[in-house]
Design a protein around this nucleic acid. Structure first.
Length: 848
RNA sequence: GCCCGCGUGGUGGAAUGGUAGACACAUGAGACUUAAAAUCUCCCGGCCGCAAGGCCGUGCCGGUUCGAGUCCGGCCGCGGGCACCA
């Protein structure tokens, strides 16, 4: 072999790693552990470049940590439940199980050639009964601990997937997967009590120092903490049992600007009134018909109906306010009832204007006088304003101060209480689907809801189902549904809802620590391997998956399945960018866009010579046809080239644009490295060079810089340094021994990125064993220090000259040399020096 | 509307407050070759200049500093998240 041939070397080294079980994770008390995890894939059947980038980054970390002496856990599995398998069954026939396991086999076959340092013995799919059975066991434990409950709830109903969606899965009023407009329906649903942890999930974000600030902020916003006042209005003319209405407000300082009270159409009072009042019943029904789509909400008018009921103002018994049912009040936030202060709230203003209600201002801008309002006055809470209808605190104060004073006033006078509220709702997990984890409970006519006995788990999905009609096949299954009560043994009905697939992915990281155990986890293993030291995945999971996982880890601690240290399961999170590509487009006769695959376009033209329009880069997607199949790249250039390319050029957190020329350049570079290694390996032992020390120094520098890049998650910079170092090596006038040693170091430094080529180079130059097992190089500190430094000389902040001086020359000597330098003398032209700044090892600035 | 983030050559991007443009892509010029492929070398922010060199330059305006891509204030533009949450 006389040239770089990835097709030969890649399978060879993969086999060598397999045989040596190089990547098998072992609990080793002698070593510190390191757990690297990339978000596991949905088994669609094809890997894409995004996967390659994600897993290559994880592999760089895993291989580096292993070389640095850690006992590394780097597993892989499959997020295998979910709608696409059922859709495939509906469209093409067949069974979701066969489709899913077939896809898993295909994708595993595509991933293995990438040469990832994964412990495949830990692989599992969430649709394995072995996995979801343990999930059911945890569900039962969570029921016992009060973390699971059932309630009647207005839910988001996806009419296409015929299932319920969580709030988080509704994007702009559409189902996150089907893209169908979501409707509101009232159903009995299973919920996880994530709201028990609202405060903690929020405050614990501060401890996640190695998470991106952006993700922490997004989660904080999502949890949505607010501080306010809860108080009760006494009612007049309300039905029995409604002597009081509790309301919640974040602006208690505006209490004297109240002009009405409003309740949600789903409020118990509204529900009582609708039974006796036909007009109210009609209005409430109309409110419920309105969809939850963004369009519907934005265009929906603020509508209300006066109930005729009156409430008494808490600060003035003589002051009565009307009670409206209003379509914009949400039942599941606060108490489902508010008081309206139109002067200082845009929404209340719109409502009051429409129904002719008073708009009394509570405060005015500092220095302004009271005036009739034509629009709501809503300054920042941190801004000082002058209260003209204040009742607590100073006349001139910030909104914040006034709110605090109002809460104190309410508590001191006994009419209200300071309250903290959260936007985060409980997590509805019921899905009316087949391909998910069955909820392990039985509905017994005698005992009610009874959890399945643990010895009967897993509650397996039946195989004999059909998808020829919409809805949930479990619900119409002849025998699966009918069972016996685990408590009393009489005929009973199995729960037919399955769990949201986000439940499956909320604990898989813990399962990897003991993937085939007969309990969800094994404490010893969880204790050794948890937490995940480095988690890597897409920013699109910033809220859903990561928030659910944080909740689930807490629930697993409460149910005894994880140690307390694991309640924040991911020590460090990295969100990588996407792989993008240009889009090539022509138009058909009707002017509609037609997209073309990159391989069909050469120099901006199709094979028939038609010029294509180039649309700026976007995420690779099938619909835009701007996809590059990793399998084609591996076939053409090898896995190392694909790995090298996705890490080069762009910082890992940003998108990287795939270009054919870039991929070719990567392949060429790897070829140059191979050729260089080959050339040195053929040199006679006696070959001597004049500049051994220079190469030793450059090698030490490369070790330091490449290592720093990897540890700082700046793989693009590591790669830039490797390019530079390869250039130095190829020009080096050094002895064979020193060249070989430097090349072995190069192999080690490249091994996290291009492991196969690294093994080959290592072997060619007499490296002992596998480079994958070689300890990470450490630079000799003495070689990192240069004896001489070049110092630029600035005159009035502009660079005019430079001098080279010994590293440790004292500042006063440097000053003398600098001022004597000929360009400096020329520039100064005799002007007196006002100031002279010498920054040792850095720069000299002369001020005149 | 509210909350974030980002603006550097033709392109992707480097740069602890200290020589702006490392490294790479593209373009151009050249070497080798009968030729092509492959490989290698050089140039590559703008303006002036034969050159040496000079002037300008990190979205725009201002400030702090001996020194600002970097820090501060204000604008403009782009991107993201949330959005009837009382």
């Amino acid at each position: 072999m006389s040239r770089y041939s990835p097709a030969e070397i890649e399978p060879k080294w993969q086999k060598a790693w397999d045989q040596a079980e190089t990547f098998k994770a072992k609990r080793d008390p002698q070593k510190p552990k390191y757990y690297v995890l990339e978000m596991f894939p949905y088994p669609s059947g094809r890997i894409h470049m995004g996967h390659v980038r994600n897993y290559t980054m994880g592999d760089v970390v895993a291989r580096t940590k292993a070389a640095q002496g850690f006992s590394v856990l780097h597993p892989m599995g499959w997020d295998a439940f979910g709608m696409p398998a059922e859709n495939a069954a509906m469209e093409r026939g067949g069974h979701p199980k066969d489709w899913t396991y077939g896809n898993i086999a295909d994708m595993r076959g595509q991933m293995k050639p990438l040469g990832l340092s994964i412990d495949w013995s830990r692989e599992f799919a969430t649709c394995d009964p072995e996995y979801y059975g343990q999930q059911q066991a945890m569900f039962i434990d969570m029921m016992e601990k009060g973390l699971v409950y059932r309630k009647n709830a207005v839910v988001n109903w996806d009419p296409v997937d015929m299932t319920v969606l969580a709030n988080e899965q509704v994007i702009d009023g559409r189902g996150w997967r089907s893209n169908a407009l979501v409707e509101r329906r009232e159903l009995t649903q299973w919920f996880f009590k994530i709201s028990d942890y609202s405060a903690e999930l929020l405050s614990a974000l501060d401890g996640l120092k190695d998470w991106p600030e952006k993700v922490r902020l997004m989660q904080a916003n999502w949890i949505g903490q607010s501080r306010g006042l809860q108080f009760a209005f006494a009612t007049k003319g309300a039905p029995a049992g409604f002597e009081k209405i509790e309301v919640y407000t974040t602006r208690p300082d505006t209490l004297m600007g109240a002009s009405f009270a409003a309740i949600s159409p789903d409020h118990p009072l509204a529900k009582t009134l609708e039974t006796t009042d036909a007009k109210i019943a009609e209005f409430v029904a109309e409110c419920r018909r309105v969809g939850t789509s963004a369009e519907a909400l934005e265009t929906a008018e603020k509508k209300g109906m006066d109930t005729g009921i009156r409430v008494v103002h808490p600060l003035d018994p003589a002051w009565e306010l009307p009670v409206y049912i209003a379509n914009f009040i949400l039942m599941d936030y606060g108490t489902g009832a508010i008081f309206g202060c139109p002067a200082h709230d845009a929404r209340d203003f719109e409502f009051a204007t429409k129904y002719g209600l008073a708009i009394p201002p509570v405060f005015v801008a500092e220095g302004a006088e009271e005036d009739a309002l034509t629009e709501p006055f809503v300054p920042m809470k941190s801004e000082k304003v002058r209260y003209i209808r204040g009742f607590a605190g100073e006349a001139v104060q910030t909104g914040e101060a006034a709110i605090a004073a109002a809460i104190t006033h309410a508590e001191a006078n006994g009419y209200g209480k300071g309250m903290t509220n959260y936007r985060l709702r409980d997590w509805g997990i019921s899905r009316q689907r087949y391909w998910g984890c069955p909820i392990p409970v039985v509905h017994c006519p005698e005992c009610g809801i009874v959890p399945e006995k643990k010895e009967n788990l897993p509650v397996r999905l039946p195989d004999d189902v059909s998808f020829d009609q919409p809805g949930n096949p479990l619900d119409r299954h002849p025998t699966w549904r009918d069972t016996r009560c685990p408590a009393c043994g009489i005929h009973a009905k199995r729960e037919t809802d399955t769990m949201d697939t986000f439940v499956d992915s909320s604990w898989y990281y813990a399962r990897f620590t003991s993937p085939h155990a007969g309990t969800p986890t094994v404490m010893e293993d969880a204790d050794y391997w948890m937490n995940v030291d480095q988690y890597i995945g897409g920013i699109e999971h910033a809220i859903l998956h990561l928030l659910y996982s944080r909740f689930f880890a807490r629930a697993m601690f409460k149910t005894g399945h994880l140690p307390g240290k694991a309640i924040e399961p991911f020590n460090a999170l990295f969100t990588q960018g996407m792989v993008t590509h240009e889009i090539y487009m022509t138009r058909d006769a009707n002017g509609r866009p037609v997209y073309h695959l990159p391989e069909d376009v050469t120099e901006g033209k199709l094979a028939d010579g038609t010029a294509v329009e180039v649309v700026p880069s976007a995420k690779m997607s099938k619909s835009k046809k701007n996809v590059v199949d990793p399998m084609n790249i591996i076939a053409a250039f090898g896995a190392d080239t694909a790995r090298w390319f996705v890490l080069s050029d762009s910082p890992p957190e940003r998108d990287v644009e795939w270009t054919a020329s870039g991929a070719e350049a990567s392949a060429k570079h790897l070829g140059r490295v191979w050729t260089l290694a080959h050339r040195v390996s053929e040199m006679p032992e006696t070959h001597k060079g004049a500049a051994d020390d220079d190469l030793r120094r450059a090698t030490a520098r490369a070790v330091a810089d490449v290592t720093a890049g990897i540890e700082g998650f700046a793989f693009n910079k590591s790669i830039a340094k490797l390019y530079e170092f390869t250039g130095v090596l190829s020009r080096a006038d050094a002895s064979r021994d020193v060249l070989a040693e430097s090349l072995r170091t190069l192999a080690q430094l490249m091994s996290p990125m291009t492991p196969h080529l690294a093994e080959e180079v290592w072997a060619m130059l007499g490296g002992v064993g596998l480079v994958a097992n070689a300890p990470w190089p450490k630079p000799d500190p003495a070689l990192l220090v240069d004896d001489n430094v070049t110092l630029p000389i600035q005159i009035n902040g502009k660079r005019r000259a430079e001098i080279s001086v010994p590293k440790d020359m004292p500042a006063d000597q440097i000053e003398k040399i600098a001022l004597a330098q000929e360009d400096v003398v020329k520039f100064l032209a005799g002007q007196p020096v006002k100031k002279l700044i010498v920054v040792p090892g850095r720069i000299i600035n002369v001020v005149v």
